[in-house]
């Protein structure tokens, strides 16, 4: 062993990769700036204006509290209902979509549908439903359901696929039917994961439902866009506060209930 050899902290081949990666990011960043042709000449005055408006927003006006709180209730209800419906539907479908307990044809079919729905953002689904059904919370619920369903089918079927082959094998050996295998071998070990995924999705749905109103699907988002459109910054400030409290409250609640799914799973998808 040579005495002057260094123990590198980052392996040599990783180092090259990092350099290439960061260089690529820097080039993309500069190209993007050129592409957007950002015009920052009026930037400072606009920023000052933004701060002035935000200052006005901090000076909250509670006079419309009835409408705002009803909007918040409506938003939360939309989120809850969409989560319940989509979770129930996804629960049944995910058994068809999980490759270890289903047949190939069904797996491909449902996974394909889920991937297709998921690739289109929630708000665009809602926009389509609003175009068909008109304004109100009803298209909001359906739009949220659609996307949550696809998301949960993927998450649930992944959890089911993580069930140990031995569980299923053991039950099969005793002559259990498919339903019995599901009820005794597959559901119990995945139960916690399913609940956590649903909770995670609920958190997301609350955030989404609070902005659905911006495309005409009712709820507190509608109050926000109404207040901003008529330049009632003081009222908008109160609406933003309520949106923040809704989302913060649910984050805290789930933190207390320890329902927080390991969010790292998300990025492994």
């Amino acid at each position: 062993m040579k005495t002057d050899s260094k123990i590198t902290i980052i392996p040599e081949n990783q180092k090259v990769f990092y350099i290439v990666f960061f260089a690529a990011v820097a080039i993309l960043y500069i190209l993007s700036i050129f592409q957007l042709k950002l015009n920052l000449s009026g930037g400072l005055s606009n920023f000052l204006k933004a701060f002035e408006f935000m200052g006005k927003m901090l000076n909250m006006d509670f006079s419309e509290w009835k409408d705002v709180l009803y909007g918040a209730l409506e938003s939360i209800s939309v989120a809850v209902l969409a989560t319940i419906i989509s979770a129930v539907l996804a629960f049944f479908v995910s058994f068809m979509a999980a490759s270890n307990v289903s047949v190939n044809f069904l797996t491909w079919f449902w996974k394909g549908i889920a991937a297709g729905i998921r690739a289109v953002p929630t708000l665009i689904w809602t926009l389509i439903f609003v175009a068909y059904l008109g304004l109100g919370p009803f298209p909001g619920v359906l739009g949220l359901c659609f996307h949550s369903f696809a998301y949960l089918v993927k998450a649930f079927s992944q959890s089911i696929e993580e069930v140990k082959e031995g569980n299923i094998e053991a039950l099969k050996a005793t002559g259990a039917t498919w339903l019995q295998i599901m009820a005794r071998g597959v559901v119990p070990p995945t139960k916690t994961a399913l609940i956590s995924w649903t909770a995670l999705r609920f958190e997301f749905n609350v955030a989404a439902s609070s902005i659905l109103g911006l495309v005409g699907a009712g709820g507190i988002g509608h109050e926000l866009s109404r207040a901003m459109r008529s330049f009632e910054f003081e009222q908008a400030g109160f609406v933003v506060l309520v949106i923040f409290l809704m989302s913060f409250g649910i984050e805290m609640l789930f933190h207390k209930l320890k329902l927080n799914v390991d969010k790292r799973k998300l990025k492994r998808q």
Binding site: F47, L123, I211, V240, I243
Partner: peptide
């Protein structure tokens, strides 16, 4: 906890 879309609405009056 304030969605990005809400930020966008807040900035529209100032930045156009």
């Amino acid at each position: 906890n304030i969605p990005g879309l809400a930020w966008a609405i807040i900035f529209v009056p100032a930045f156009g």
